[in-house]
Design a protein around this nucleic acid. Sequence first.
DNA 1: ATTATTTTCGGAAACGTTTCTGAAAACGTT
DNA 2: AACGTTTTCAGAAACGTTTCCGAAAATAAT
Lengths: 336, 336
Amino acid sequence: MKHVTIKDIAKELSVAVSTVSRAFNDKYDIKPETRDRILKKAAEMGYRPNPIARKLVQQRSFNIGIIIPEFENSFFPQVIMGAQEILYQHNYQVLIMQSNESVDLEVRNAKTLVDNMVDGLIISLSGVGNNISYYKELIGKKMPLVFFNRVPENIEASKVVFDDYKWAFFATEHLIHQGFEDILFISGADELILSKNRQRGYDDAHKKHRIPTGKKITCGFSMQDGVQIAENLISKNNIPRAILAANDACAIGMIRVFKDSGFKIPEDIAIVGFSETKMAAHISPTLTSVEQPTYEIGKAAAQLLLEQLQNKGIHIPQTIVLNGRLNVRESSVVLS
Amino acid sequence: MKHVTIKDIAKELSVAVSTVSRAFNDKYDIKPETRDRILKKAAEMGYRPNPIARKLVQQRSFNIGIIIPEFENSFFPQVIMGAQEILYQHNYQVLIMQSNESVDLEVRNAKTLVDNMVDGLIISLSGVGNNISYYKELIGKKMPLVFFNRVPENIEASKVVFDDYKWAFFATEHLIHQGFEDILFISGADELILSKNRQRGYDDAHKKHRIPTGKKITCGFSMQDGVQIAENLISKNNIPRAILAANDACAIGMIRVFKDSGFKIPEDIAIVGFSETKMAAHISPTLTSVEQPTYEIGKAAAQLLLEQLQNKGIHIPQTIVLNGRLNVRESSVVLS
DNA sequence: ATTATTTTCGGAAACGTTTCTGAAAACGTT
DNA sequence: AACGTTTTCAGAAACGTTTCCGAAAATAAT
């Protein structure tokens, strides 16, 4: 893997390396003719600038790191594609790492990325733990950073989140409108703002309609989590009339278990998911779900990051709250 | 973002930088006491080695690049997780890039990764084009490289693939056993070996049972592709009795269109998917699908790469063929 | 023609490591 | 005590760039 370097070009043309360097970054004084001569020769020799060397001296990389908790749901991949679209336009490359829902792996990922001199970081938390203090440290060092979706609470940083309060409220209200009163709330990890906001939405919808709230169960975001909870409910013969699930995967897991045990959805149990995976419209019954604007979340995060990148750390942390939509389908509607 | 460097430690302890460096890579002569002294001081000062500088001099990075065509299906994320598991064990970091099904973006990705001095590359093709010659060049330069799933044909390289021939054969035979004779074959892009192998399997199953083969349509791997083809078939009133789809996404897209147009699955049209996405067991009707061992594909690819890494380019290209399973579900079975 | 100004470029330092070369220090051998 | 070995370290070069500084060449001004 021998590469052509700037020196080879310099020697070939008997100019200084600094001149060759200037030819590539026009910002410096260089005679157009010699620049063209160098550029031509470079192309001829198949020269590609070595980003590693450049990083070392410039202390920047034009790389952005994105850290996500998991790959299983299509949610995060879609957010990434949104972010990529914006960042590519500004000549940033995107490095993706996934933390497998582990806080430790997450900070290890973050550290590798930082060591590799990414110019900025876009992060969705796997959980809350010793990662927070590390992120605070990074922010203290003016590292451009934006959180999305699963964001930390007590940290001064730019964030882009979904309006979980509002849509948990609407989703709950939708179930109430259908006449259900015993609505189980499946929450994501308690420490996430996201969970708290949904909880408030759920509570307030009950308050508005003067109905006592149902139970709450804390759960992860995978199908497996849904399966476990459903099995648990069945074994305890503790079947709610309706369920507001943590996300679609969780909802789908539950539905399968319930169906296998002879329950009818929505006749016996109604259910609403969250995040609108592509599955929602295709499973049986089709799943009512709160749709999140995944691409837009990615784009917004990228844009916030770009701002920070341009202002070199001096910026006011903002939180962008994005709106969604409730896609009503079979799983929550009983015709009476 | 000011970092503690090896020099700072050297100054602090008034030793040479080379000594500090030796302390971190034991392979060199250094007195245990001074090594410990340095290590302790380094930890105290919060030193983290700069991988960029190391890459520059060592000309290697302990990074592996993985390039995939798309993120939409859970297939590739799962393969990645399998590969990660193995590579992490050997202290390699994994950098993921996605090519959006574009051959051009794919080689751009590959070049960035190479420029960033990844030690090896694991690639699934977005298509066949000018990328192939670039990969041949890389292999000529002894860059460790392994292809998986969507692999190129005329290229001497390690590959890990699924036994598409066998399982296309079985899937076709399964449909024939159900009594269907007009079986539409939806192929992936023609240039992929994968497509050719499936075609052979499909053909041979027909031969074995002395049935004339049905039509073939070439298609992409997304749900949208399935939707288009199904709409096309309907508008031309050209409805097959059964379908062997390119993958689950494609099958699901078709199913939705057919159902919306009043066709019954499997009574009017039977269908078999490929790749066993998590959706398969949950859509309505549940989808018969050929299951591929995604994690194992990732693991195998990682292992092949590790071999090359250890043997420094001297290796015999091998092709690992992995086996699968046919999950028979409602979409292909008519009770008569 | 002389000087002042601008344009263009070469030389060298710097980024943070690893690694080569060789020298000093410690030890052993006779 | 003199010499040979081994252990331990310091110094410097190298990796491929960018960028600072200043000098030479070209141009403009007097």
